[in-house]
Design a protein around this nucleic acid. Sequence first.
RNA 1: CGGGGCGUUGUGUAACGGUAGCACGAACGCUUUGGGAGCGUUUAGUCUGGGUUCGAAUCCCAGCGCCCCGACCA
Length: 409
Amino acid sequence: MQQSKLFYKANKNKSANAESVSHDLLVRAGYVDQLMAGVYSFLPLGFRVLKNIEQIIRKNMEEIGGQEILMPSLSPKENWVKTGRWDSVDVLFKLKGSGDKEYGLGLSHEEVVAPLAKKIVFSYRDLPFYVFQIQNKFRDELRAKSGILRTREFLMKDLYSFHANQGDLDKYYEICAKAYKNIFKETGIKVYRTLASGGSFSKYSDEFQMLTNAGEDLIYICKKCSIAINKEIKGENPTCPKCGNTEFDEKKSVEVGNIFKLGTKFSTPFDLKFTDRDGHDKPVLMGCYGIGLGRLMGAIVEASHDDRGIIWPKSVAPFKVHLIHLGGPKVKTSADKIYKTLHGEGVEVLWDDRENKTAGEKFAESDLLGIPLRLVVSEKTLEKNSVELKERSKDAVKLIKIKEILKHV
RNA sequence: CGGGGCGUUGUGUAACGGUAGCACGAACGCUUUGGGAGCGUUUAGUCUGGGUUCGAAUCCCAGCGCCCCGACCA
């Protein structure tokens, strides 16, 4: 991609209305644009990051048997009434269509996936199965905050599992927890699996929390065994559920994922059952497993930046290489050649081909954008048939031969 | 939803009730080219509606919007 054609505009001034680091940097570097409180557009740079995160999640969900589907955002009021969530969930967006027909905008998809499963599941032979989607969710949060960390519309991966018995659900729940750990590791952040209350869903759930001051949650990490619990759990029982210790570190954190054992909570209202080996009908047991993609993206920035800008982990970076040329037409021609070579080899490269920008501006913006590898071409480097290579996360620069660039990127 | 703060050009900000200015950006020209470079020209703004006043960005009322704290959080 040539930067002169990229749909974005970076800004030197700090955003006035952005308290959190990720909000400020993502807006300033042109990754996202705020439309209103809690609602954002993802510009090409931001969308590329989002798609990389999406791909990591997709791969891991497919590895544990997840089959990808796409469910609608609109759903009929009746289904929400059936589960009681029309009245009990105050963040549900409700809207009215023609003929005064009422709809709910999906904030999670039990009301859609359970009736769907009912059309496919009849026998124990049809179980278990796992379906997931990556789709926009709508929640009428009382207060959106911290840029893309808490929004009213956001991309979420939600997986639903269906089981014939508790043992099977328990087993899959742990498999999914492991996949989650892997996802967060791949996206470059450290998370704590945190025992939490399940809200209206189940007695207990597990949250995946990343430590950051920009977060809105508090978690308690056992000083002895490093198990983490959230506030509600500590409120109920102030001892470590694993080792009985009572000493905890209190830390601010952001929840990037959450898993629940739903049991029969949603299968019962929709009469979702199956015929077991013994010939008797039994309710299907469900689990649900969510990750907010935009929030994860924000969390990554919170975890990985410096005072000059973002430092993307390679796995999610919008481009792998930021190519910069300094100098006149001759240098630009060489840069163009390098750009085409890299591009031709499938290396994701952003080339700052702008002619009216000074070296300082290009460097400063490169640091702000946070692409992992920077290649600089100038007359100085060309004299040695080389380019300069620098990792965004490090200070060291080194010269590498142009012929050998592909070995380094 | 309670409390607080704030709405001035694309962004960041200034202006006692009296000429809406500065910086960044953007555009053009010339010069420059290894850490946000220089000169010149240009561009674009007082959230909306009322009120007070000779005169309102400024004071008052209402609305809308944004941010923060809290509450809430499938």
